[in-house]
């Protein structure tokens, strides 16, 4: 069971190894707080969809499984969106546009198709948690690089008088703005993936 959990974080990391869900990942990784928010949303929806797909795997006819998964995922996302807007309006405001984006995150459909419809509920829950946390950590890593280099700040949760923005002296006054824009997202992603490829190939040789 533990293997199902840790594989999502390292061996089958959704961003750097199986390269799933890149579109929303690159879109929202301009600030650390956005990465955390998107990650939280993905973990929740992934957990819900994996549980339901695994529960219904014998009920859903094979021919229409993809539409059935899409209905389940879209319902979960809409549910999250409505509940969040009603009960956590400030969080909804900062995450608003990411929540509907989760529907088209191929990581979720990918896990439903590749894992949850073949495995038990318990394994699917661990898979969802591992994949979700792996996704969140990778996203946070990309966002950290992009925000520090591109804006010279680190944005975390605002608490009380602290507005959540840590300014890094030196970079803040002269940031490399390209990292904050779309091209920078691809650059950072590419370099990080190259680094992880180099790292794992080195480990294999030794």
């Amino acid at each position: 069971m533990l293997k199902e959990f840790t594989k999502g974080i390292f061996k089958e990391n959704p961003i750097f190894i199986i390269v799933l869900g890149l579109c929303p990942a690159l879109g929202v990784s301009s600030k650390l707080i956005n990465a955390i928010g998107m990650g939280a949303g993905v973990i929740f929806v992934l957990l819900g969809s994996n549980i339901f797909v695994s529960l219904l795997k014998n009920f859903i006819p094979d021919k229409v499984r993809i539409p059935a998964y899409v209905v389940i995922i879209a319902s979960f996302v809409t549910l999250v969106e409505m509940v969040m807007e009603a009960y956590l309006p400030s969080l909804f405001e900062s995450l608003g546009v990411f929540v509907p984006l989760i529907v088209v995150n191929c990581l979720i459909l990918g896990r439903a198709e590749a894992f949850a419809n073949k495995n038990t509920i318990k394994a699917s829950i661990f898979d969802a948690l591992g994949m979700g946390i792996g996704f969140t950590l990778s996203l946070m890593l990309i966002a950290l690089f992009r925000e520090v280099l591109g804006a010279g700040t680190v944005t975390i949760m605002a608490i009380g008088n602290f507005d959540g923005v840590i300014k890094i002296p030196g970079i803040y006054n002269a940031p490399a703005r390209v990292f904050g824009l779309s091209a920078g997202a691809l650059l950072v992603m590419g370099y990080l993936k190259a680094f992880f490829n180099w790292y794992s190939s080195r480990k294999r040789v030794s």
Partner: peptide, 13 residues
């Protein structure tokens, strides 16, 4: 079956 899934989803929403 697909219609049933959709109906349940719609009712829940």
């Amino acid at each position: 079956k697909l219609a049933l899934i959709c109906t349940i989803a719609a009712i829940a929403l």
